[in-house]
Design a binder for these strands. Sequence first.
DNA 1: ACCTAAACCTGGGCGC
DNA 2: TGCGCCCAGGTTTAGG
Length: 275
Amino acid sequence: MPELPEVLTIKKDLKKEILGKKVVSVKKEKNYKPAHSTDLFSKYVVGHLVEDVDNIAKLLLIKLSSGKYIASHLNMSGILLYNTTDPYIKMSLEFDTGDMLYYSSVRMFGYFEVWDNIKLNEYKKRYGKTALDQDLSIEEFTKIIGSKNKPIKTVLLDQKLVSGIGNIYANDALFMSGINPYKKANLLGKEKLEELFYNIREILNEGIKNRGSSIDRYRDLYGKMGNQQNFFRIYGKREKNCNSCGNKIKFEKMQGRGTFYCDQCQPLDDRIRLL
DNA sequence: ACCTAAACCTGGGCGC
DNA sequence: TGCGCCCAGGTTTAGG
């Protein structure tokens, strides 16, 4: 699924395309079941204007003049498409301009639903600031992340601490920082945590600049692939050699997620480095 | 109150 | 060709 760079890319394009437009019809495909009755779409979406497009962590929000929101989490395989389709469309919105917005998903994990403020606020409470939030200071980051007695990769993927970092960008940010994914976060030290903070911001911003990572399903709002996959530091380089030291890259499952690291450049024990 | 493992799904790619 | 397995940008939940 989209991580923060992909979500922010979609958000920006969505804002540009649909702000101020009125929804005139909604269509749901039979093989998609939102958590609520489709009445909510006809009641709170059809006939209403798009007032804003926003996000909470990786959740996309379309604010409507009815006071309700379309909340869409793309999860692993979801995409939003504007005036272009694919074989996995689940929901379609038609605007007064004739433009179309589609929610597409292969694996059925994501959702595209009508939410009210209450549900939105409950959701918000469960998530930390995104890694790119202007008001997430380096002090706050190091305090939140550096206090956990858990592997740093697990901590980075915990969205209630700091949100937006997913598996791709976590792998790459750790490689850039020379940090072993198994290293306990509370053993990293101030300097390493700060380095990690800067590298997370760098790699997320690079992802945005390259319009996201398309390793499989991800496409932007116009159905186009992102480019960040061409710049991966270590993610996806199973059986390949480290571009820094030439050693064979390790691939292991950690918390069920594919984890790539170079045990030379990202030593678990600092003593290994000194030898 | 922790942690992990499995579950939620579909489809693509690989080896045999 | 086909079957079985492994893999996938995430999150939630059940179970120890």
